[in-house]
Every structure is written in C-alpha cells, then in structure tokens.
Design a protein around this nucleic acid. Sequence first.
DNA 1: TATTGTTATACTCTATAACTATA
DNA 2: TATAGTTATAGAGTATAACAATA
Lengths: 175, 175
Amino acid sequence: MDADRSAPTAGVPGSNLGWYLGVILRGWHEEVERAVEGVPHGTRGYQILSVVGHNSPPTQSGLAKHLQIDKTVMPYVIDALQDAGLVERRTDPKDRRVRRIVLTPHGERTLAELEAKVRAAEDAVFAGMPAQARQAFVEHAAQLAVSIHSAHPSIDPCIAVLDALVDPEPGAAKR
Amino acid sequence: MDADRSAPTAGVPGSNLGWYLGVILRGWHEEVERAVEGVPHGTRGYQILSVVGHNSPPTQSGLAKHLQIDKTVMPYVIDALQDAGLVERRTDPKDRRVRRIVLTPHGERTLAELEAKVRAAEDAVFAGMPAQARQAFVEHAAQLAVSIHSAHPSIDPCIAVLDALVDPEPGAAKR
DNA sequence: TATTGTTATACTCTATAACTATA
DNA sequence: TATAGTTATAGAGTATAACAATA
C-alpha cells in the first residue's frame, strides 16, 4: 500500500532553491539575533547601525529603500535606537524635510563590538562548510543580491555600498 | 560639516551577508509568488505540494519540521490545499494518529505545471547572473542549507530529500 | 503637486496554550 | 506519559491611509 505510488512527477526533481534560501536565512537570523541581543529590534536594528556606520549619513527613506522595509517602520525603530543613545537624527540643511541618521560615539563603539559578535555568529552558521566554499557562496550571493536589487524599480542612489562591494578595489585590505 | 566624520569604524566593512540573503529571498519570493498565483497560501502551499510530490507520503509534523514552520499552521494550509482538490489526508494504518499527505491526480498535474512556472520565475531571479555562477551559487546554497538543517536539534527522518540532494547519484539526469 | 517624515489604524501572520485521539 | 493533529486566542509584525512640513 506504499510502493504503488508510481513515482509522481518523477525525473523532474523540481527546484529546492526556496527551501535552501529559507533555511539559510532562518539559520543566519537565529544565530545573529542571539549575537546582537539587547540591540533595539535585533537584527534589523543592527543592520541599520551597520549601514549608518559605513555610509555617508543616509536618510530615513534611503535606509528604508535599501533594507526593503516599509517607510512607516522607520520612525519607531530609529526612535528606539536614538533612545538607546546609538544614533542621532540631523536635519539636512540643504533639504529640511530629510533627517540624516548618524552614529553617536557610543553607537560607533557598539557597532564595532556588534560586528565582532556577528562575525562569530556567521562563523557558526558556516561551521559545516569549507572556507573556500563559504567564500565562493558569499561572493555569488553578493553578486546576485546586487543584481536583484538594482533590477528593482526603486533603487536608492543615496547608499552606494553595493557597487563598492561587488567589485572592491583590487588589493583592498580583505581582513 | 560633512567631511569631519573621521571614517567611522573604517577598515572593517562588516558583513553584508544578512542583506544579501534578505534581498535574494525577497526577490525569489516576489517572483515565485506571482508564478504560483492561485495556489492556496502561495509559495508555502507550493513548497508543500513540491515536498509531498517528490517524497514518500510525509506526515503533517514531518512537513512542518522540514519546512521549519509551526505545526499549528499545518491544519489550515492542508485544509486549503485539500479544499482545492490538490492533496488528500490519509490515516496511516500503522499509527492511526498520523495523517499522511498525498497528491491527488489533479495535484500531480498542477504541481508539474507549477514547477515549470517556478523554473521560469527563478530564471528571472537569476537574469542578471551568468549561468555558471548561478549553478555554483545554487550548489553551495544546497550544501549550506543541508549543513544548517542537519545541525538543527529536530531534524525529521521522514523526509530524506536532503541527503539525496547534497550528493545526487553521479551521472543522474541533470535536466 | 511631490516628497519626507510621522501617526493611527487595520490587517496578516505567528506563536502560545489547551484539547482530542491514539500510542 | 508522550506524540500527532487540531482549535482558539493573543501577540508581533506589517501594510494602509491620512496628515504636517518642506520642496
């Protein structure tokens, strides 16, 4: 009563890409969420700190577009980061509608600490994978993510990390 | 007032892995969600159909563990797929607590059609990437996902796709 | 008129707890 | 007692709509 399934849709295994991506992202999220414990809004708060720390002061809408989250979530996330003393809002004198988000000194120190913890967490995610395969995977992921992101209708010109990351200056310090 | 930012946490670009994975998974989800339009619960319903179609009849808890979703979401998703005539619940005679999910003939036809659409959708996701890089990325993603999944406390022995996928029979039809 | 940021609200999705039936 | 499946409910997260300030 079990062997008579006549191999449904056999020969065409179907893609498991969605499953791969889901498992990997969930795994990353679990590990990193634990690593950044205490940061307001967890991985999302950390990602905002990271973008703010490594780019010319982004605007709130720029952050929202870059991280692909709704603009209405920015206010309270930024509020929380500001209440924690990690970031500041600065009105742009050139366009007084926009608020540029910058790290406070405390935010800079915190970000540096967090990034060390995140690196450790990511090491745990890749624990079962050879270093060479890991590097290849991350490089391809970067390439693909940039490709997808720039194919999107609303790319933000404010944050130029992406291009810099696809093709970092040859010979740049990679560690 | 802008150039005095003294390069915050410079030299340590920090990992963008979380951003890569998020962008890629969201891109995949958008494309595939559109491709499987009409299937109850979209990509999730499709993923269930796919697992059910390519594995010996899984139980509901096996599906939940494999897809890493809470067991309490299974009832209504399976209900919806059943109402659409795509799957059936069969009480396992060996353990009358479990329900094994099987595709109906209509479900098999539908799955075959969906998989063609999903392949096209994934082609769109990878549109900006060379075929060779795509293949390498997917293979590494499979390797990593299996590594992460099997490191998890509650792996399900019911569904053995994974191992089969990491190291497919050498010479197996790859297209 | 269009855009940035904000607030309030409604909606969807997810997780928690408790229950039935089988083992 | 433990597990598969189910149900109801509460909570978190998300999107929708409307507004003020500025361009």
